[in-house]
Amino acid sequence: MNLFSLSSCPTPSTPCSYDYRYVDGSTAQGVFGKETFTVRLTNGRVARLPGVLVGCTNSFSGDSFRGADGVLGLALSDYSFTSKATNVFGGKFSYCLVDHLSNKNVSNYLIFGSSSFSSATKLNATRTTPLDLNVIPPFYAVNIIGLSLGETMLDIPMQVWDATQGGGTILDSGTSLTFLADAAYKAVVSGLQRHLVGLKRVRPEGLPIEYCFDTTSGFNQSKLPQLTFHFKGGARFEPHRRSYLIDAASGVKCLGFVSAGEPGTNVIGNIMQQNYLWEFDIVASALTFAPSTCL
């Protein structure tokens, strides 16, 4: 245990230890190793990726690892699996996440290399926006210029979206809920709350979400205005309503946002990304996305 958190290996034969901490408070401790990964190609063949850095965890805490056999980090660092795979397979990767309450026989998918915007994706709804790979490394930053509810742009100060002023926005598959800097958070939840008048407010145990409502008497989700993320350059991301008014328990729906403080980095979480295909082009520094059934 006294070897954890070493910044370097004492000798070439001494295991390098780590004590890794995640944003949600989860921790993992163990030793590093290098392995060769074998991956299956779409033509049925296999390929090998040598020298991939792997952490062999022998102690962990927190929710990130419950029910999981491991974690595949997708951040763009010198040591990540993503960097190794994109160097070999054309500088791109993509994923599509089904609804988090889907049946267990339905799978998400992750592809390294060019993705195909297939019949499962609405081709005429494909959008592209620049990726800022050097602004909030090793995360995938995007340039948001504003949020709207329905036809109304919300009054949010521009510094909320400015990474040079402690703001900025990342797209993160490893965070479930969506985090918004306090000014954006207040504008979004107050705007949505006006359409939830009449529903009893509740506070389910163990959830970090502030705004939850009893919907046992019925609630038509289509009454909620469309939330839209407006990107620099004109691209717009319109998440499904069930991705921001989420089912938290039987008869309980919650606004799926958490305050990131002020200033704070905004995080578009994986529930907000549901039923969209996301393609990250590392070479062209571009993010392409479109609604998809993920089939």
Rank of each mutant, 00 (worst) to 15 (best):
N2P: 11
S8K: 07
P12K: 03
P12D: 01
S13D: 15
C16G: 08
R21L: 14
S26K: 05
V31K: 10
N43S: 02
V46K: 12
L49K: 08
N58K: 09
S61L: 07
G70W: 02
V71F: 02
V71G: 03
G73D: 00
A75Q: 10
G91M: 03
D99T: 09
N105W: 10
N108D: 03
F112I: 05
L123C: 13
L131T: 04
D132Q: 14
Y140I: 02
N143H: 07
G146C: 02
Q159N: 15
W161Q: 05
D162I: 04
G166N: 00
T169G: 00
T178E: 03
L180F: 07
A184E: 00
K186N: 12
K186R: 12
K186D: 11
K186Q: 11
Q193G: 14
V202H: 02
R203M: 12
E205G: 13
T216R: 09
S217H: 12
S217A: 11
F219P: 03
K223A: 10
R236G: 12
E238T: 14
H240S: 06
R241V: 08
R242G: 14
A249R: 07
K253F: 11
K253N: 14
F257H: 04
G269A: 07
I271W: 06
M272L: 09
Q274H: 11
W278A: 14
I282K: 02
A286V: 04
A286K: 12
